[in-house]
């Protein structure tokens, strides 16, 4: 265990945890309203750790849907992680043992992926760094859920604090860091345009996040073509 790397991972998770606070809290509150106990809501955040998927579960529960429907919807929403995880493989190779890398990938989310990929552009991954980043993000998610489920009714609007913009602000900044070459900028702009266009033309992709997957695949492929010329 490298202390320095672990600490760096924990440090890098701070913006994520800050962003998860209102989201996890709101999930806890809504889960309670949808009929989940405090333990169930907290266990869901512990076992699933999928913000979008957990919110979808609540939506389907409240609409009277079946457990199977929720599981199927989550299978679709979480397909994007196949892409994230695969793109991490070349970075982890030779730096992180496969078994440890696989276990720690449990904590792979949109946010930890964005932060980790940004870090790997200049530093090789280490198990300690990933553990620091992923585990503290996960703990933040679990605790904020627990707080929301337990105290939800006592706390009023957290929008006043502006925390709803934490994750968008983090994405914006990481995007700026990560688009250095012209082809990166081209890929980023294509992906932004495509995910909006697909979301607009096929609104259901906004719910299952397929627009992210399709836009990413097309934009990365376009980036390859541009580069070859």
């Amino acid at each position: 265990m490298q202390k320095q790397e672990l600490r760096q991972g924990i440090n890098d998770s701070i913006p994520i945890v800050l962003g998860y606070l209102p989201l996890g809290f709101a999930f806890g509150v809504l889960a309670n309203e949808a009929g989940m106990s405090i333990i169930q809501a907290t266990m869901m955040s512990l076992l699933c750790f999928t913000g979008a998927g957990q919110y979808i579960a609540l939506g389907i529960m409240q609409a009277g849907g079946a457990a199977f429907t929720i599981i199927l919807a989550n299978a679709l929403v979480n397909l994007r992680y196949l892409l994230f995880s695969t793109s991490l493989v070349p970075y982890l190779k030779g730096h992180v043992p496969i078994a440890i890398g696989s276990l720690l990938s449990y904590g792979l989310t949109d946010e930890t992926y964005a932060v980790a990929m940004n870090r790997y552009q200049s530093h090789p991954p280490t198990p300690s760094y990933i553990a620091g980043l992923n585990l503290s993000s996960h703990i933040g998610w679990i605790i904020s859920t627990l707080l929301g489920a337990a105290l939800g009714t006592y706390i009023t609007n957290s929008d006043r604090l502006g925390l709803s913009f934490t994750l968008p602000a983090m994405y914006i900044c990481l995007l700026v860091f990560m688009t250095r070459s012209k082809s990166d900028i081209f890929v980023a702009l294509s992906s932004a345009f495509l995910c909006l266009l697909i979301g607009y033309l096929v609104p259901s992709t906004m719910g299952n996040l397929f627009n992210i997957i399709i836009a990413t695949i097309i934009a990365a492929s376009l980036g390859m073509l541009i580069n070859e010329q």
Partner: peptide
């Protein structure tokens, strides 16, 4: 080529996430 393609996945994903989080904060554009 696959490695190169995968290296473009991160900027593409991040850009999609940024776009949706700003232009569709409540899940619709």
């Amino acid at each position: 080529p696959l490695k190169r393609w995968l290296s473009l996945v991160a900027p593409a994903v991040l850009s999609s996430l940024t776009t949706l989080s700003v232009l569709a904060p409540d899940g619709f554009i």
